[in-house]
Computed example of a mutant assay.
Amino acid sequence: MMRRSVSDGGSSGGWGEEEGKGWEVRPGGLLVQKRGEDGGGDAAAAAPPPLAPPELRVRVLYGSAKYEVAVSSVATFGELKKLLMEKTGLQPADQRLTYKGKERGNTEYLDICGVKNRSKIVLVEDPTSLERRYIEMRRNARIQNVHRAISDISLEVDKLADQVTTIEKSISKGNKVAEVQITTLIELLMIQAVKLDSVPSEGETSLQKNLQAKRVQKCVETLDMLKISNARLKSVVVTTKWETFDPPTTAQWEFFD
């Protein structure tokens, strides 16, 4: 949309002359036909086709990167920021645009500020945005470390839980197992419980941590019950020696000719 200023008294030519031919300039500089005196419709004459504002190709410097952006000459710096978001990934609120050594506001127009084709505009990230992004990066790194620690503990608990299941099946079949196997498993599970306690967590990671803690507790409780059941079973002595059978002795050997 074109914007032009109109003097109070008009002139003998230009916009003032057009107004005398049935045209008027609305607020904001828009040229339209005058309404009929009775308000019943537009004037009979056809309006001239609107002129499209020229397009500019401005060069934007962002650190060591350079971008060339096509933008309307009557666009605002705020609209330019939206176009730059697609190229830089920076939100408009995190962008600071400087032209001719002065930071430009979102509502300032490019043409009014003197921006022309191939003009250079400098883009920098807002300092508060940098700080927020740094804090967010540290937070994400901390969460990833927590996920990794809980995942490692989960794998160890999986292995120990499989051993608990094996012992449980053996005892359920009446086979006594060495008590040291049960006590050792309990100790290993408690080590994983201590590791879980030392892992800082919040939100989703806290839920994962609690889930693994419950698994460890369940395994320990199962082993405590198996220890009681195992104590009631009799030990089965298994020998690797084969029993030998001596042939019957005879007082007299038979001789065969």
Rank of each mutant, 00 (worst) to 15 (best):
K241P: 00
L83D: 08
Q181M: 15
V238Y: 10
V157H: 05
N145D: 10
L160N: 03
T250V: 14
E103T: 12
A46Y: 01
V199D: 07
P247G: 08
V177C: 07
T98V: 11
A46H: 05
T250F: 14
Q192F: 02
L160G: 03
R138W: 07
W242S: 15
Q33W: 00
I171C: 06
S172P: 00
V146Y: 08
I112T: 08
M1C: 05
S235D: 09
S229N: 15
F256M: 13
G41T: 04
V32L: 10
R142S: 14
D224V: 11
E156L: 13
A45S: 08
M1P: 09
R133M: 05
S5A: 12
T88M: 07
A47M: 14
Y109C: 01
Q217N: 11
D38G: 12
D94M: 03
L90V: 00
R96I: 15
L188A: 06
N175P: 00
S72T: 12
I143P: 00
V157N: 04
T249K: 13
L189S: 03
K87A: 05
L51Y: 12
K116E: 14
C113M: 12
N210G: 03
N145E: 14
Q95W: 02
Q192M: 09
A193T: 03
T222S: 14
Y67R: 02
P50A: 11
G105S: 11
G101W: 07
E187H: 10
E103G: 06
T222G: 00
S235K: 13
P200H: 06
G10C: 11
K173M: 10
A178Q: 15
D257S: 09
A52I: 04
